[in-house]
């Protein structure tokens, strides 16, 4: 029996100065195996190293770069926050 791997869709968002550096605020990628947040970054940003001090979130919760990303997850990368 032939098993077809169905690609998983992941949404990736960038904010503030990082969005300006990347050149867009949102994209989506299709992958056939679960990735970590660091692997999502590498795939979207052509294997550029993760900038120091960058913050990461999955489904609007802070995570570290080794967090596993699932189908339909929303991954976000952004610089240190400056509100208040």
């Amino acid at each position: 029996m032939l098993l077809l791997k169905i690609p998983m869709s992941i949404t990736v968002k960038f904010f503030a100065s990082l969005r300006e550096q990347v050149g867009y605020n949102e994209t989506s990628i299709n992958v056939i195996k679960p990735l970590t947040v660091a692997e999502v970054w590498a795939q979207v940003c052509d294997n550029a190293p993760l900038p120091p001090h960058i913050l990461m979130a999955v489904n609007m919760e802070y995570v570290t770069q080794d967090k596993s990303v699932q189908e339909n997850d929303e991954v976000a990368f952004f610089p240190p926050v400056t509100g208040g």
Binding site: S17, P79, G83
Partner: peptide, 14 residues
């Protein structure tokens, strides 16, 4: 609340 907001709430100033 203000210290947590300033250090972790996702806002950015330009």
């Amino acid at each position: 609340l203000i210290e947590e907001l300033k250090s972790r709430a996702p806002f950015w100033k330009k």
